[in-house]
Amino acid sequence: MKHKILVTGGAGYIGSHTCIALHEAGYDVVIYDNLSNSSREAVNRVSSLIGQPIEFIEGDVRNTESLRQVFAAQPFFGVIHFAGLKAVGESVAKPLMYYDNNVSGTINLLEIMKEHDVKNFVFSSSATVYGDPETLPIDERSKRSCTNPYGQSKLTVEHILEDLAASDKSWSLIPLRYFNPVGAHSSGSIGEDPNDIPNNLMPYISQVAVGKLDKLSIFGNDYATVDGTGVRDFIHVTDLAEGHVAALNYLKQQPQSLGFLPINLGTGKGTSVLELLRAFSVVSGQNIPFQFVDRRAGDIASCYASADKARELLGWQATLSITDMCQDTWRWQSMNPNGYNLV
Rank of each mutant, 00 (worst) to 15 (best):
L261T: 02
I263L: 07
L274E: 03
G266N: 13
L276Q: 04
R278E: 10
D294H: 15
L265T: 02
Q291D: 15
L261S: 11
N264L: 08
S281T: 10
L261G: 01
S272R: 12
S257Y: 07
N264P: 04
E275S: 11
D294T: 15
R296N: 12
G259P: 08
F280S: 01
L277P: 01
S281K: 06
Q291G: 11
I288S: 07
F292D: 05
G285L: 00
L258P: 09
L261N: 06
S272M: 07
G285S: 06
V283F: 06
F290L: 05
F280G: 00
S272N: 03
N264V: 04
Q253G: 14
G285K: 02
K269V: 04
G285F: 01
I288Y: 11
R295P: 07
P255D: 12
D294I: 09
V282C: 03
T267L: 04
R295C: 13
Q253W: 07
I288T: 10
N287P: 05
V283P: 02
F280T: 01
P289L: 10
N264A: 09
T271K: 14
P289S: 13
G285E: 01
L274Q: 05
F260Q: 04
R296Q: 15
I263H: 01
R296V: 03
V283K: 08
L277M: 09
S284R: 05
G285T: 01
V293M: 06
N264R: 03
S281Y: 04
G285N: 02
Q254W: 08
A279D: 03
Q254K: 15
S284P: 06
F290W: 13
K252E: 10
F290S: 05
V293F: 12
T267V: 06
Q253T: 07
L261I: 02
Q256D: 13
Q286V: 00
Q291R: 09
V273A: 05
P262Y: 10
S281W: 01
L276Y: 07
L276T: 03
T267S: 12
I263T: 00
Q286H: 04
L258H: 10
V282N: 02
L277Q: 00
G259A: 06
G268R: 06
K269P: 00
R296H: 12
L265D: 04
I263D: 01
V282D: 12
V283N: 01
F260K: 11
I263A: 03
G270N: 03
D294F: 14
T271Q: 11
L274Y: 01
L265V: 08
A279W: 01
G268V: 09
S257W: 07
P289G: 08
G259T: 04
F290T: 02
L265W: 05
S257V: 01
Q254Y: 05
Q291M: 09
L265M: 09
P289R: 06
G266T: 08
V293I: 15
Q286A: 14
Q254P: 08
L274D: 00
Q256M: 13
P262N: 09
V273D: 00
K269S: 14
N287S: 15
N264C: 11
I288A: 07
N287K: 15
F292Q: 13
I288C: 10
L265N: 03
N287T: 13
T271D: 03
R278H: 11
G270E: 03
R278C: 01
G268T: 07
A279R: 12
S281D: 07
K252L: 11
S257T: 14
S272E: 08
G266C: 09
T267C: 04
L276G: 00
P289N: 10
A279Q: 08
R278Y: 08
